[in-house]
């Protein structure tokens, strides 16, 4: 039965049910309040803008990851792709005019994603295996192209990108704006476009999709190509922030992206998940790192806490089902 918010809250245990239903937002708010109380540096514009800058790269690939996971697949290659594409972008920035360098990097990202898409959609390879292989290939190619060391931006185009990536517009970091634009486009495509409808249909029942005359292969191909393109965009952003492209970038980002999507309540078997909740997942992970950094907690305990939060979030979602 569709109950209004007010009715929901007034039924016995309604508040608890409400909290469980919107658990991702709830955890996010609790973390924000907790952070604000525990550290007086947290609510400064410098810290908040740092936080947003830190999450933008992973945020963008998380959106791609969500779209892939909605079809019931997974893309393990995105972290390594960020490294390879950051190196490629640094090389291109030093060779070509900036718009061409950006365009070529995005096209190569699309192409690499298409390889995964082709293997999964038309060769029926398991997504885990196909993208695991690409993950190794991409990381290796990153080291080959860069000869193992970072490639610096040496042109005016590079300088422009570096300025763009480190500055803010109206107090919001530019790269966070790029991330938010991607979030908005993805929300619109998933909610109001046939593309999103079919991606979710395929993830919730692939055989029924096939027998409804949906071009299952085409959409499965497309989601990996999109994920690759978004990895390229993330690569451009992280390379620009540091003024260089390094084969060590994006280490285990694919795992953070999967974690963000899962914390956002998406089902790894496909068909369930939303961009807004994934955004919350990204921010939650970012917040945890941020507050632990402010409290001077070293990075290994940070990993333990992160893992604990993931387990907690998924347990909460099981309550929701009951």
């Amino acid at each position: 039965m569709a109950l209004t918010l007010k009715q929901q809250l007034s039924t016995p245990g309604g508040i608890l049910k409400f909290l469980i239903k919107y658990n991702t937002i709830f955890i996010f708010l609790v973390l924000v309040i907790f952070s604000a109380v525990i550290s007086d540096v947290f609510f400064t514009s410098v810290n908040l803008s740092n936080l947003l800058k830190q999450v933008s790269g992973i945020g963008i690939i998380s959106v791609g990851m969500l779209i892939v996971i909605l079809t019931g697949g997974i893309d393990l290659s995105v972290g390594s792709m960020v490294a390879l594409l950051a190196v490629i972008f640094a090389i291109f920035v030093n060779l070509f005019a900036l718009p061409l360098a950006i365009l070529l990097t995005l096209v190569i990202g699309f192409g690499l994603g298409s390889v995964a898409g082709y293997l999964v959609a038309y060769q029926k390879m398991a997504p885990f295996i196909a993208t695991l292989a690409l993950m190794t290939v991409a990381r290796g190619m990153g080291f080959i192209f860069s000869k193992g060391s970072p490639i610096r931006f040496e042109t005016y185009g590079g300088l422009f990108m570096s300025n763009f990536a480190n500055n803010s517009t109206l107090g919001v970091p530019n790269i966070a704006i790029v991330f938010f634009i991607i979030v908005i486009i993805a929300t619109i495509m998933l909610k109001y476009n046939v593309f999103g409808r079919l991606v979710i249909a395929i993830g919730s029942n692939e055989e029924a999709s096939r027998l409804s005359g949906i071009k299952v292969g085409k959409y499965k191909f497309l989601v990996y190509a999109i994920s690759g393109t978004l990895a390229a965009l993330a690569a451009i952003i992280v390379a620009s922030r540091t003024n260089l492209g390094s084969p060590n970038m994006g280490l285990s980002w694919e795992l953070d992206a999967i974690a963000a999507v899962v914390i956002g309540g998406a089902s790894l078997s496909g068909g369930k998940g939303s961009v807004i909740n994934t955004l919350m997942g990204v921010l939650i992970l970012g917040l945890i790192s941020n507050i632990l950094n402010l409290l001077n907690v070293p990075s290994y305990p940070q990993q333990v806490v992160k893992g604990g939060i993931i387990i907690f979030a998924v347990l909460l979602q099981r309550f929701e089902k009951k």
Partner: peptide
């Protein structure tokens, strides 16, 4: 297993074959 999408709404189930007539040329519903 092959006929309906159990986790999806009635609306999304019925529309799945019919996007040509309920969406614009760019695919917006």
């Amino acid at each position: 297993e092959e006929g309906v999408f159990l986790p999806l709404s009635i609306r999304k189930n019925i529309s799945v074959t019919n996007f040509d007539s309920i969406s614009s040329s760019l695919g917006f519903i």
